[in-house]
Simulated assay, not measured.
Amino acid sequence: MNQRIVFSMFAAALVWAGAAVAHDGASHPPAANSMAKMWQERQEQAPRLAVAAAFDEQGRLWLARVVGRHLQVSHSDDAGTSFSAPRTVNPVAELISADGEARPRIAVAGGRVHVSWTQALPQPFAGHVRYARSDDDGQSFTTPETVNDDRQPITHRFNAMLADAKGVTLAWIDKRDGQGRKDYRGAAIYTARRDNGEAAFSNRKLADHSCECCRLAMAVDEQGQPLVFWRHIFGKNTRDFALAGVHAPVAGEPLRASEDGWQIDACPHHGGDLAVDGRGGRHLAWFTGAAASPGLHYRRIDGERMTPPRAFGDLDRQPGHPALVAAGEQIWLVWREFDGERNRIVGQYSADRGEHWSPAAEIASDPGAVDDPVLLRGRGATWLLWNTAGRGLQIRKLAP
């Protein structure tokens, strides 16, 4: 079958799924009860496969995962061969989103373990961004708190997080500014920062008119400042990607990081990824359903120069959900594909900042339900983490 026909069917399915999560429950009052029931059932019954992981400065691997209505954290001193007994972060049970786009986060810096997650509220597509911290090597955690200072039962979801020795920075998708405004496009990107010793998070809007439910990516630039990469609504309804630093709130439209021209009146539920190399180059990977160039694409941004988008992935195998990691001039890029029988993780490697790439090769596969791939740097190497329903958490060291 023709690749573009197969991919068009795949993209259409993504848009249909995204349309269901592109609005807050308040947008559909006649169907509020049935929609709320569907929302709750989806959160409760969907496989809880989305995990978060991070290496600390000593090479210990930290893992956060959702079990029932609790977030649990454990660690491994042997790169994932064995893990400690898990510690529960939230002693009071709450419904936690744990799918590919809305997933828990963990970061370790300066001897502190930071975790964040999205608490799913009873109202359809509503949530709060939650946070807790451990100051005693993961033995106990602070009382969970809500990061967003707007407490309406609407979308405050799809959290991302970075930590450094001085504190923690979060970003999320927030619909507070569009309430009661039919002319408001999409949602907004909000951020919050708290330095060590401060009592509360300070919320700040980064940009208006983000897409409503594509995961965010964050990375630190060469000056140590956090960057956010997200799907944005340009013009009336063109959903391409944007990039901005959290300390420079956007006036007007942010830097347009992709020019695919994908015009859809729904959220595709398909975020991208971001990594920064040793020279400060921004490496981007994303998905588009634009008819002229469907599928996955990669580019590098050096200052004001952008490389042309490079397509990757097999369109006959529904490529999606890319992940990136950079170390010096070395770049790893992985993504998911489905061959009709098995989910596959496929990867490529570049030793020269994305100028040249190794051939795409399968790294892992599984016939059952799976999470999106997670890439990490630690112990002087790059690691792939992939959670599966059948075989559990898979951890693999990648070699060029």
Rank of each mutant, 00 (worst) to 15 (best):
M1A: 15
N2V: 10
V6G: 06
V15R: 05
A19H: 09
A22C: 12
H23I: 12
H23N: 13
A26E: 15
S27H: 10
A32D: 11
K37A: 15
E41T: 13
S76I: 06
G80E: 12
S82D: 14
P86R: 02
R87E: 14
V89L: 09
V89K: 04
N90D: 09
A102I: 09
R103C: 07
I106H: 07
A107F: 03
H114R: 09
V115I: 05
T118E: 09
P124I: 11
H128Y: 11
R133D: 13
P144R: 05
H156N: 12
A160R: 01
A165W: 05
V168D: 08
V168W: 04
K175M: 15
R176I: 02
G178A: 06
Q179H: 11
Y184A: 10
R185V: 11
N196C: 14
E198N: 11
A207P: 00
A207G: 07
C214P: 01
A217V: 08
A219L: 08
F229M: 08
I233Y: 02
I233W: 03
E253M: 08
S258Q: 05
I264V: 14
C267K: 06
H269I: 08
D273F: 04
A275R: 02
A275S: 10
F287V: 01
G289D: 04
A291R: 11
P294C: 06
R305Y: 09
P308M: 12
P309H: 08
R310N: 02
F312M: 02
P319N: 13
A327N: 13
Q330E: 15
W335Q: 01
E337T: 00
E341G: 13
R344N: 09
Y349A: 15
I363T: 05
D371A: 10
D371V: 02
P373G: 06
L376Y: 03
G380W: 09
A381P: 00
G390K: 13
